[in-house]
Amino acid sequence: MTTNPLDADRPPELPRPRRGGGRGGGRGRHRRDESLMVPDVQFESYYGRQVVKPAPWKADIPAYIFLGGIAGGSSLIGAGGAVTGRPALRRTGRYAALAGVALGGLALVHDLGRPERALNMLRTVKLTSPMSVGSWILTAFGGFAGVSMLCEVGRSLPDQRSWLARALRAAEPPATIGSAAFALPLASYTAVLLSDTATPTWRESYRGLPFVFVGSANAAAAGLALITTPADQNRPARRLAAIGAGVELGAAEWMHHDMHPLVAEPLRQGRAGVMLRASRVLTTAGALGATLLGRNRVGAGISGAALIAGSALTRFGVFEAGLASARDPKYTVTPQRERRDQRRREP
């Protein structure tokens, strides 16, 4: 077959199933190689074409989810550092939070069909739209993270008695609390963003996915902190790395079992399967490394990098798995038929 840009939306044709009989009526029809025919429609699909459409999103979106997670986690680390008096963690947490949210925002805008209309996101507040809710969370978080960062800058102003320095000091507690408060939904709402769709694997994963995401966010933020903070101040990061990774891995495991087995399949297959397997290895290794070698600057750095990579792969893997589940009609049709037949049996 010839190809055109739209072919990407059309998976290759399924082989035609063998059928018994053929045209009856005594008209003397022969048996034949059925794979040659205009592909017959199987019970579950129309020429093997997708029923629901995959999201038109590119790598920007999993990147954003990852960056949002790292920003949220970092902001918690920053806050923790501030509260518990660990300046290195406070500083890197705050900078990372702002950097993450800024880059994530850019990725988000970049993925828009009409980036020049990005601000239309703030035209309304819509509770049924996780993206609308998320936009406001992102905005609020971005605001607080920005102020926190300014506060951080303020701390190194030469004249600590100037009105600016004083104002920044006064702003610090609310900014810290605000950014920590919005960090939590920022890292978790993205799971709802994916689940609130007709994409089978995303939707079916809605119970476990937020836990995977927050675990992953914390692990990645901790990983970043491991890289950026001196070993003598990184103990909370090491602990967070282990806890976050543990939650992520545990939640993922639970999620797989909780899901309809067919719909969980894309998480194990294809590119998504590879990414998620790699993510598991990296996350586990990062957590172990952080725990065992985290006191060593180099060991901490390598473990941190592994955690970050693991977290990113989790997001990309889940993202890919969703797209794959939308492209193949069986993931849409089969569970729906089961659900419908179940309902018919027990009205």
Binding site: G72, G73, L76, I77, A79, G80, A180, A183, L184, P185, A187, S188, Y189, A191, V192, Y206, R207, L209, P210, F211, F213, V214, G215, A217, N218, A222, P236, A237, R239, L240, I243, G244, V247
Partner: peptide, 16 residues
């Protein structure tokens, strides 16, 4: 679920 996860995230950080 996302709310619970957010709480869990906070708990993790506090724990750390």
């Amino acid at each position: 679920q996302a709310g619970l996860a957010a709480v869990a995230m906070l708990v993790m950080a506090v724990g750390a």
